[in-house]
Amino acid sequence: MLSLLCFFGIFACKGPDQQRYTLEGSVILLDSINVPETDRELEKIIMEYRESLEADMSKVLVYSEHVMERGSPEGKLNNFVADLVFDIGKEIYQPDDGKSIDFCLLNYGGLRVPLPKGEITNERVFELLPFENEMVVITLTGERTGELFQYLAASERGMPVSGIKLKIKDKKPHEVLINGQEFDINKSYKVLTSDYLAGGGDHMNFFLQPVNYELLGKRIRDAIILHMQRVHAEGKKISSELDGRISVVN
């Protein structure tokens, strides 16, 4: 008992508010080795939901030549999604002024999972783009468009783009081509993006005071599904490559 008191004496010297417990922490991987059995009762409830989903979701939309992952400053998945959204956007868009869309900008964070090689199911596309984001055409002043390129150049993450070529030096835009033409700050530009980004998502504040805001009435995910169905109907597979559309130079 005496020794016990001594111990508390030592504590008191260390400070009045000692940690009152010992903590042991770990993170357990939920795989079939750590947890061989699953919960039957839960499986039953999940089944109710799964069955109605499955029929729809397990449908194979298309086959992919290779794995596509997002990347920075560019990635195969970035390019794949931005290109097809740009293509379908241009197809749907009926401009009042006769001017078509100049380029497409989406966000890295919006690409939620990689696409595997082989079967691409409806479900995988839902996982890739789970958000109910709509396609929007934003008309920006040259000045705002310049801010957009500054944003891209400063970003740590490779934003999916199509229709532009950007060389970055010291985190600043070094060379900017839009449709092969040099960027002109005195011109206005039409940018295809999502309603999320158009609302200032991912701090894309340059979208917040647009010259014009036009909803295309199509979800980005639906555009992707449409594209995949077309490629598949032609008996082809989807693929993507890196082409240096965004690059860092010294």
Binding site: F7, F8, F11, Q18, Q19, R20, Y21, T22, L23, E24, G25, S26, V27, I28, L29, L30
Partner: peptide, 30 residues
């Protein structure tokens, strides 16, 4: 604690409290 994402992992923390002697608690070796 944070466990990554997508419910691929479950975090576990085991706390061993000692409420002996009023509110003086003790830290010890696991």
């Amino acid at each position: 604690g944070q466990t990554g994402y997508a419910g691929v992992r479950l975090g576990r923390m085991d706390l061993y409290f000692n409420k002996n002697s009023g509110k003086i608690f003790v830290e010890s070796n696991t």
